[in-house]
């Protein structure tokens, strides 16, 4: 029994290797991109549209609305990043129902990579929105004494993001694996449904937290003039 799909290695050449995490990620990417491409190839700007287009529009609009509610001024600007985070994690969760498929989010390497992306994206959006100086000043808020704590929080929240997702995804897969070995059919099915639910919740939590961090990094300057008045 593998603890992580990283351990299933299909091909290796020195440092380069092709493990299950990467391969299944590619498969998910292929499904997501091809699905989107198929649906958006015949988009209609009029009143009549296909059910698939309706579904995609509902998902995109819902994500946009959520981002707006969190406090992001221009949700469409962050939709690509946060929306893809959500869709990728959700697709990975849904893919666990396919027998033999290892969700790439069950690997700590993947969740670390996603958390690292968030860790990079937050200052990037912050700097783009309020400049390098303005962004760096947020680390000295409310006083310079808070600088080390702000830095620690930056690293710890990234770690928390990675470990939370990994723990939830891996535990689900692990529990199903263990239960399949020791109990009859019914219980693992229930656990699979529970795993799907927690997986979807995790996808939501992961993307919402990323959005909150980005919002916190971009909103500071906008709040300052209001607090000074």
């Amino acid at each position: 029994m593998h603890l992580s799909p990283d351990d299933i290695i299909f091909w290796q050449f020195g440092l380069f290797k092709l493990n299950a995490t990467i391969v299944y990620t590619w498969a998910l990417m292929l499904v997501l991109v091809l699905g989107s491409r198929l649906i958006t190839a015949r988009l209609s700007g009029g009143h009549r549209r296909s059910a698939w287009q309706n579904l995609l529009e509902i998902i995109v609009c819902m994500m946009e609305k959520q981002l707006g509610e969190i406090g992001l001024a221009h949700p469409q600007r962050y939709l690509g990043f946060i929306g893809t985070l959500f869709l990728f994690v959700a697709a990975a969760t849904l893919s666990t129902v396919i027998p033999g498929f290892e969700a790439p989010t069950g690997s700590l390497s993947t969740t670390v990579a996603l958390a690292a992306c968030v860790m990079v994206a937050v200052p990037m959006y912050g700097i783009r929105d309020q400049g390098l100086r303005g962004y760096l000043q947020t680390y000295l808020e409310p006083t310079w004494i808070m600088l080390p704590f702000n830095l620690i929080s930056e690293v710890s929240r990234t770690l928390a993001l990675a470990v939370r997702l990994f723990g939830n995804m891996m535990s689900g897969a692990m529990i199903i694996g263990i239960l399949l070995a020791i109990t009859p059919f019914l219980f693992p099915i229930v656990m699979t449904l529970l795993g799907l639910l927690t997986g979807m919740v995790q996808a939501y939590i992961f993307s919402i937290l990323a959005a909150v961090y980005i919002a916190a990094a971009t909103r500071t300057r906008k709040l300052r003039p209001q607090s000074s008045t």
Binding site: W26, L32, G80, T110
Partner: peptide, 29 residues
């Protein structure tokens, strides 16, 4: 190595999704 590959994968996925999903959908809306 996997972390690096996944970061790259994710960046590529973001670009592809922007190209094939969000932009056309938002444009249609």
């Amino acid at each position: 190595f996997t972390v690096a590959a996944q970061v790259l994968n994710f960046v590529v996925l973001v670009w592809l999704m922007k190209r094939f999903l969000y932009r056309p959908i938002l444009r249609a809306i």
